[in-house]
Write a protein that binds this DNA or RNA. Structure first.
Lengths: 172, 172
DNA sequence: ATATCATATATCAGCCTGATACGTATGTCA
DNA sequence: TGACATACGTATCAGGCTGATATATGATAT
């Protein structure tokens, strides 16, 4: 989605590769995108004059740095003010659990334990992000980053509580 | 995804339209699919002999009823035992919030309030589902339905708690 | 009568994912 | 020094899915 890219470029000029990295770190909890959509989107953003490209060489490595334009900032702000179209949770774990009656509790318990492990592995990163952001209370943007980190923290904790309850139920 | 359809057909024979309805009710919290994927998937499942089709007329209306085969049940069971590939949360609300520094707190607060409304509207359905499923404790499959409903309940409650905290932070 | 809604199937442009390909720089182990 | 792995960086593409749209009938309400 082009507005995610504009959002990231609003703060700093980036290469396509760096945009992907931001998504895989700061946004990974609630958004993702592949190179197969990032590069073509960047081209179309350049075509629409919402970003400009600057080809350069850094330590012998060719790269393209993208910078947002005023029109791009305008476009982003309009989109930000628009109501949200879709919030989607798509959990294969829950899908397999829903059909758990076709297998037995053992397989379902294994899915729950795997889910629990993944959540437990992620949670410290969210807590660390919250902790850091609470330390710098004044930079305007940080407050918004904090909100999303707090969301992740709360939700992941709820996941873990559910895991305990679900395991208890399946173990009789 | 073909295994969702097999899972639904495992319990009862259905038309494509009814499959869609199940997804929009029982599964809507954690899974969704469009007609544009359901009908072609059903065709390919028939081609692979995982389901059979039966064309009929009901009250003068033509319809096609799909029934799972033994091979289909086998296929489903294998898939259910496989580890989960992807659990994905994709919340536009969090994305817009993350970039909230570009607008102002008013727009972000509006997104939070809208999110809160949607969650509050959904929660009663999950609670009602939990309540019903807890009442019939013996039918094997219900225990698994209950797990997913409980997940939704817990998560939605965590969402609402976060909404309160987020609003407090943005209102200073 | 007629409008609206639910049932029912189907197609399709356009977008996105996951995989793959290609190439450079840096760090590391032997 | 050479060999290998990892990070950086760009790019393409088959295949799958969404959201929109089209078509048609039965049921219900006004």
């Amino acid at each position: 989605m082009d507005c995610v890219i504009l959002g990231l470029l609003c703060h700093e000029s980036l290469t396509g590769y760096e945009i992907k990295k931001r998504m895989d770190t700061a946004l990974r909890f609630f958004w993702s995108a592949s190179f197969g959509s990032i590069y073509p989107t960047l081209n179309s953003l350049v075509h629409d004059s919402l970003v400009t490209k600057f080809e350069t060489t850094d330590h012998g490595r060719d790269k393209v740095i993208y910078t947002i334009t005023d029109a791009g900032r305008e476009h982003l702000k309009k989109w930000l003010a628009l109501p949200v179209k879709k919030d989607e949770l798509r959990y294969e774990t829950l899908l397999k659990l829903f059909f758990g009656g076709e297998t037995g509790p053992d397989i379902s318990l294994e899915h729950i334990r795997n889910f629990e492990s993944r959540v437990k592995a992620e949670l410290p990163f969210l807590q660390e992000a919250s902790r850091k952001l609470k330390g710098i209370p004044d930079e305007k943007a940080h407050r918004y980053y904090l909100l999303t980190a707090m969301f992740g923290e709360r939700v992941y904790k709820a996941y873990l509580e559910w895991c305990e309850e679900a395991k208890r139920i399946l173990e009789e």
